Computed example of a mutant assay.
Amino acid sequence: MSKPFYKGRLSINKEKSSPYWMVTFQGPDGKMRRRSTKVPVNGGEFEGDRITAKLAERLAYQRGVQIACAEAEEYQAHNNVSVRTWCDGYVMRKAALVSEDTARNARTAYKHFYAYLGTRADAPL
């Protein structure tokens, strides 16, 4: 599986209600997303270094690309997992937190769910 890269539109902008640069980009599902870069708009202290406002803007753009790539990678990872594999993993993670009877009931419920889905249970999530 190749590492995804961001190839869509991406912009950074200031928002009155936030001291940080915001990034706006098109997510892998086609919807527009808006996230905070956690880079201060006016510069100052950032990750242990003093930065200028101009450097903060460049760092915010780089951080925005990283955020967009991370979401694309997560989306791609979910598209490579089948419904059955994801559900089985979910039941295994939850089994550690619930009683054995509850875990057994969940496994039975998912077995019926897989029967309902048929071949679609092995389709990508």
Rank of each mutant, 00 (worst) to 15 (best):
M1L: 13
K3N: 08
K7R: 14
L10V: 07
I12Y: 02
I12P: 04
K14A: 09
K16W: 06
K16A: 14
Y20Q: 03
W21T: 00
M22V: 03
V23R: 00
V23I: 02
T24R: 11
F25T: 04
Q26V: 11
G27K: 02
G27C: 04
P28F: 07
P28K: 05
D29Q: 08
K31H: 13
K31G: 08
R33H: 12
R33E: 11
R34I: 05
S36G: 09
S36D: 05
S36E: 04
S36A: 14
T37Q: 01
K38Q: 11
V39I: 08
V39C: 07
P40I: 03
P40Y: 01
V41S: 03
V41N: 00
N42G: 13
N42K: 14
G43M: 09
G44L: 04
F46N: 03
F46T: 04
E47D: 09
E47V: 09
G48M: 07
R50C: 07
A53E: 15
A53P: 02
K54E: 08
L55E: 12
A56Y: 03
R58K: 15
Y61P: 03
Q62M: 13
G64R: 01
G64I: 00
G64W: 00
V65A: 07
Q66N: 13
I67S: 01
A68I: 00
C69Q: 08
C69Y: 01
A70W: 00
E71W: 02
A72R: 03
E73R: 07
E74C: 09
Q76R: 03
Q76K: 04
A77D: 14
H78E: 15
N79D: 13
N79L: 15
V81H: 04
S82Y: 01
V83T: 07
T85G: 02
C87A: 15
D88F: 04
D88V: 10
G89K: 09
Y90Q: 13
V91W: 00
V91F: 01
M92R: 15
M92D: 11
M92E: 13
K94M: 15
A95S: 15
A96R: 14
A96T: 11
L97M: 15
V98H: 06
V98K: 08
V98P: 02
D101I: 12
D101C: 11
T102K: 12
A103R: 06
A103V: 10
R104I: 10
N105P: 07
A106S: 12
A106F: 01
R107D: 07
R107W: 08
Y110P: 01
K111R: 14
F113W: 08
A115D: 14
A115F: 11
L117H: 02
L117C: 09
G118A: 09
R120I: 13
R120N: 11
R120G: 05
A121I: 06
D122G: 05
D122L: 09
A123G: 06
P124S: 08
L125T: 04
